[in-house]
């Protein structure tokens, strides 16, 4: 649990830069005190605002020669990628190129699809994910889906869901409450739902539902967070909240985000991977990939965006 004090301390650039390795400076947002801070940000100059980053953190997950088949169809072809803590990996690429599939393989959700088959190795902290008990793996590698999928319960029960189901005993509502509130605050949803945590989750707006799903994933305390187009259903304001959240989370978590929005990939992605028809075409630091793509395909895809 992160108290507010602690969070401020962790987010304070001065304090952190004094401790050796240069961490990414992050703008401080305090959703709970000034909820309207987000829109004041000039979105068009996004790239200039994007924090410069330092050395990458430790490598949490490694994807090595990963191929995924749906029946005979190869949806992901021989992809190798590192996922590091302290940075955000953005996956971009045209629709149907296998981004979701790649993401779902990382916490073995593809195994729920009967026709799916996987080759290649994925490790989490050096351990092959096949050797980790699958629920334990998914607890550590959590996922936010393309379509918001809150459970048909109250807001509170949604966020508390993972916590309630994790232990061998069901914690009381009183014990859970601070965790739930914290997760909601971090997802930037708390102010909107604070007055009624027993509100049915399916009666929230699409954007609120997506942030609820993020809160739900955060409450579980994952080490790696997979986000599949988390902002596709969101308005600019909520998108900004989510992006700030991503930048804030990346120190403690490794984050992989799939997005169709190239500006967003540029804003939040420390490294960007471009996929095309299942192939990993290019993997490079965000600035490099967008300003100076090496592959022709990448150039064609991102070309129109940044001139």
């Amino acid at each position: 649990m992160i108290t507010n004090d602690e969070r401020e301390r962790r987010m304070d650039p001065e304090q952190q830069s004094s401790s050796g390795a240069v961490p990414p400076p992050i703008r401080r947002i305090r959703v709970d005190t000034s909820p309207t801070v987000a829109p004041s940000r000039p979105t068009h100059a996004a790239e200039t605002l994007r924090p410069t980053r330092g050395a990458a953190g430790p490598e949490r997950m490694t994807i090595d020669g990963l191929s995924v088949f749906y029946g005979p169809k190869e949806a992901v072809k021989q992809v190798s990628l590192p996922i590091r803590q302290g940075e955000v990996l953005a996956l971009i690429g045209p629709s149907g190129c296998g981004k979701t599939t790649l993401l779902r393989t990382l916490n073995r959700l593809t195994e729920l699809t009967a026709s799916a088959r996987r080759e290649g190795q994925i490790t989490l902290d050096g351990t092959d994910i096949d050797d980790i008990e699958v629920t334990a793996l998914r607890r550590r590698v959590s996922m936010v889906f393309q379509q918001p999928n809150p459970f048909p319960m109250s807001v509170f029960d949604n966020v508390a869901y993972a916590l309630r189901e994790q232990g061998s005993k069901r914690p009381s509502r009183k014990v859970l409450e601070p965790y739930v509130v914290d997760a909601l605050q971090r997802a930037g949803l708390y102010d909107e739902v604070a007055h009624d945590l027993s509100h049915p989750a399916l009666r929230l707006s699409g954007g609120q539902q997506q942030r609820l799903c993020i809160a739900r994933a955060l409450a579980a305390g994952p080490e790696v967070l997979l986000m599949d187009e988390p902002c596709s259903a969101l308005d600019p304001k909520s998108t900004a909240v989510i992006e700030d959240l991503i930048l804030e989370l990346r120190e403690s978590l490794a984050i992989v985000i799939v997005t169709h929005n190239l500006q967003q990939a540029h804003r939040v992605g420390d490294h960007v991977a471009f996929m095309y028809l299942g192939d990993l075409v290019e993997y490079a630091p965000g600035d490099e990939l967008f300003t100076n793509p090496r592959a022709e395909r990448t150039r064609d895809y991102v070309g129109g965006v940044f001139g």
């Binding site: 889906f145 869901y161 739900r216």
Partner: peptide, 21 residues
């Protein structure tokens, strides 16, 4: 909807609990 069960399973809840809850 499958997505509900998937959402639960993706949070590291086993299939039995996801089914019931």
């Amino acid at each position: 909807p499958r997505s509900w069960k998937e959402g639960a399973v993706a949070l590291g809840v086993n299939r039995w609990r996801a089914m019931w809850t």
